[in-house]
């Protein structure tokens, strides 16, 4: 990205933040509700300096990562099997489509009974929410594999399992990678939601605590921080995709 494009991209958010600051100072917006940038930024820096934000971030990210990994560990193998064995996909379609619309937050009361207030609570609900994009994208990616590739595997004498490992999985990987990236975004959103709604840990709980103690600037500091962390993770995952799937991008003329 060129510097020029970066600067252009910053014009709108900077203008918005300036308008926010001016509106609060002019009394158009309530400072109790909206705080203002000149108080939010110091609150953010203070939280980072004294380690509280870092500690809360670690709690949320560890839970999100855990839940996401569970979803990947179930969703990728299951998606491979469903994508390769068409009758099995038809058999499970109704079950999957019935479970998928269940709001992940509806699981909170049940999972709370099982694990109590814990990392596992965040992680389990996040895993449920992440499972569907991973599963659906993997199934679709496997179904889209060039049949000739699998036939080459047969002709070379590879057995069924070896064909999955050497042919189906790598061929589906560009699709799976997109599913994993989308899922990680969902994992963070869900983890924070669970923390706001029920679980006394992590960034979500820190936000709700700040709100209840009438410290709007701290609440916004967390909000901005969550956005920043989510964005950075997304950028890192795109980088990783481009690196590990060089063959895919090289063929498409975008390195």
């Amino acid at each position: 990205m060129t510097l020029r494009r970066l600067l252009l991209g910053l014009v709108f958010p900077v203008a918005l933040l300036a308008a926010w600051e001016v509106s609060v100072r002019a009394g158009l917006l309530s400072e109790d509700v909206f705080s203002r940038i000149s108080r939010i930024v110091p609150a953010l820096l203070e939280g980072l300096a004294d380690g509280t934000i870092v500690a809360r971030t670690y709690e949320t990210l560890a839970a999100a990562l855990f839940g996401w990994a569970i979803a990947a560990a179930i969703g990728i193998p299951l998606g491979l099997v469903l994508g390769l064995v068409r009758p099995l996909e038809r058999l499970t379609l109704v079950t999957i489509e019935a479970l998928r619309p269940v709001p992940s937050a509806a699981l909170i009361p049940i999972v709370l009974l099982i694990f109590g207030f814990s990392l596992e609570l965040d992680a389990t609900v996040a895993a449920f929410a992440c499972l569907w994009p991973v599963l659906i994208v993997t199934t679709g990616a496997v179904r889209g594999i060039e049949p000739r590739l699998l036939e080459v595997g047969r002709a070379l004498g590879y057995g069924a399992l070896a064909r999955i490992w050497h042919f189906a999985l790598p061929a589906a990987l560009p699709g799976i990678a997109v599913g994993l990236r989308v899922a990680f975004g969902i994992a963070i959103v869900v983890a924070v939601t669970v923390e706001i709604a029920a679980n006394p840990r992590g960034l979500g709980y820190a936000m709700i605590t700040a709100q209840q103690s009438l410290r709007a600037e701290v609440m916004y500091a967390y909000l901005f921080w969550i956005g920043l962390v989510g964005w950075l993770i997304n950028v890192a995952m795109i980088r990783a995709e481009r690196h590990w799937l060089r063959w895919y991008w090289a063929a498409r003329g975008a390195a």
Binding site: R148, L149, A155, L156, G157, P170, L245, W247, Y248, A251
Partner: peptide, 21 residues
């Protein structure tokens, strides 16, 4: 069934090669 003693070369080379290798 396929055996290593018989090797086949397909017409559609672009689909028969593993693009990630």
């Amino acid at each position: 069934e396929p055996t290593p003693e018989l090797a086949i070369v397909f017409q559609d080379y672009s689909r028969a090669l593993l693009p990630w290798r």
